[in-house]
């Protein structure tokens, strides 16, 4: 792509990645969550891949597949965390530990350290969606061949 597109992509891509991370991190407080934030962050990857050419990003495929496996395994492990009661039981909620602060009932400003396993699952699914969508876009672009116009 032209130098204008490359410059704008270089400026905007970190902002899109940061916004995706925000949407994932506040998934239990504000609209959003793992899937939505992952899609936002994967769009940053697609922007970078299109503006700088797909061939340059060939080496990122192995880390992306590692991230995808890591997200899936973390999600299943978090599901097994509550196997003492039942699968996907939220054992961390309101326990006082990690992400276990009690929630004030009714409308409130929102505390980040609430939610139990929900924020961790949001991160697992977010990593999974970033890696999955990014690798799909990268594979389709790499198969199409270099067309650097």
């Amino acid at each position: 792509m032209t130098v204008v597109v490359r410059t704008v992509a270089r400026i905007i891509a970190p902002m899109i990645l940061a916004f995706g991370g925000y949407v994932i991190m506040h998934g239990h407080l504000t609209p959003g969550g793992g899937f939505q934030g992952g899609a936002v962050a994967a769009s940053a990857l697609a922007l970078l891949a299109i503006s700088f050419g797909f061939g340059r990003w060939k080496g990122i495929k192995a880390p992306l597949s590692f991230l995808e496996d890591l997200g899936a395994l973390a999600f299943v492990a978090l599901g097994f965390l509550g196997i003492g009661y039942t699968f996907f039981r939220n054992v961390l909620a309101a326990s006082g530990g990690l992400f276990g602060a009690p929630v004030p009932p009714g409308p409130n400003p929102g505390l980040l350290e609430t939610g139990g396993t929900l924020p961790l699952m949001n991160w697992a699914v977010g990593l999974k969606v970033i890696a999955g969508l990014g690798s799909v876009v990268l594979l389709l672009g790499l198969f199409g061949g270099e067309d650097d116009r």
């Binding site: 239990h28 969550g33 299943v76 699968f87 939220n90 992400f99 929630v103 139990g116 929900l118 949001n122």
Partner: peptide
């Protein structure tokens, strides 16, 4: 949802807590 799942976002608590098995299939 606020007392049981500890999350302000009810949709997220349905997706990941009450219907977590569904989300596992989706993943």
């Amino acid at each position: 949802a606020q007392a049981e799942a500890g999350a302000n976002n009810v949709v997220t608590s349905v997706v990941f807590d009450y219907r977590g098995f569904d989300t596992l299939g989706e993943a």
